[in-house]
Amino acid sequence: MADVLLYLSLMAYFGGTALWLGFFLAQREGLCRAGAWVMGLGLIPHTLALCLRAWNYGHFPAATLGDTLLVLDWALVAAFLFLNWRFPIKVLGALAAPLAALMICGALILPPGRGPVSPLLNSLWLAVHIILALLGYAALTLAFLGGIFYLVQERQLKGKKFGSFFYRRLPSLEQLDALNYWCLTIGFPLFTLGIIAGSLYAQHALGRFWSWDPKEVLTLIAWLIYAVLLHERLTVGWRGRRAALLAICGFLVLVITFLGANLWFSSYHSFESFTRQP
């Protein structure tokens, strides 16, 4: 049943992708509005599927990579729709919508979580830790997408490529930089709170706040990158290209944290340990 709902979301996100790409190419206002609606419609079965999985498993559905990817995707689409509503940078959908669709594809291909899970996972604290961290990820992902657009548009302007394909379609540098700033100021606190929640839970469950396992180390690196970026933004006035580059760097570390730490290193943070009885 959850899978049927997910396929519905997948179709909506692919539809949204087509509409947003169509908007990007043809620059018709109606297409992007339709795109936002279709994405919003897709979020409904997506939400239901997550609830259904949580109900079936009896715990927050983040025990496998596939499940977690779904939650992250949900956060991404929600954050994108919120941003699109409050702070419309329309071309963002042309990257966010396909990303959302691909993430559902990934979640559907990866094996779903079955069987008993480690009792470590049956905690509200842990759900808070995951939700906050993933919402932070989603906002920082949008900062990353904005950063890519910034670099492309800056290249057009500096290189004096007027009338080029991207020059005409991408928004102004100021808007893209503001996107970076807003996503950072929202995403960074969420991310930080997620880390704090996790560390408090670790103290409660394992008796130590920080264990220096690979995921924690990588997270710390990403956190430091974003902390530096935010600090320099506020004090020295870093912006533009540097801010975009750092947002991209930070995101790449996050991706390694999210995927790599689980696939390559084994630690108590990796997914396979969740489904193993202690």
């Binding site: 004096k160 007027f162 009338g163 912006r239 533009g240």
Partner: peptide, 24 residues
């Protein structure tokens, strides 16, 4: 123009924009 966050254009650049505007 090589400096970050500074965008410098001379008269030829603007003429280029104009020429492309006409074409468009």
């Amino acid at each position: 123009n090589d400096l970050d966050n500074v965008y410098l254009y001379n008269i030829d650049d603007l003429q280029e924009v104009v020429a492309q505007g006409w074409e468009h």
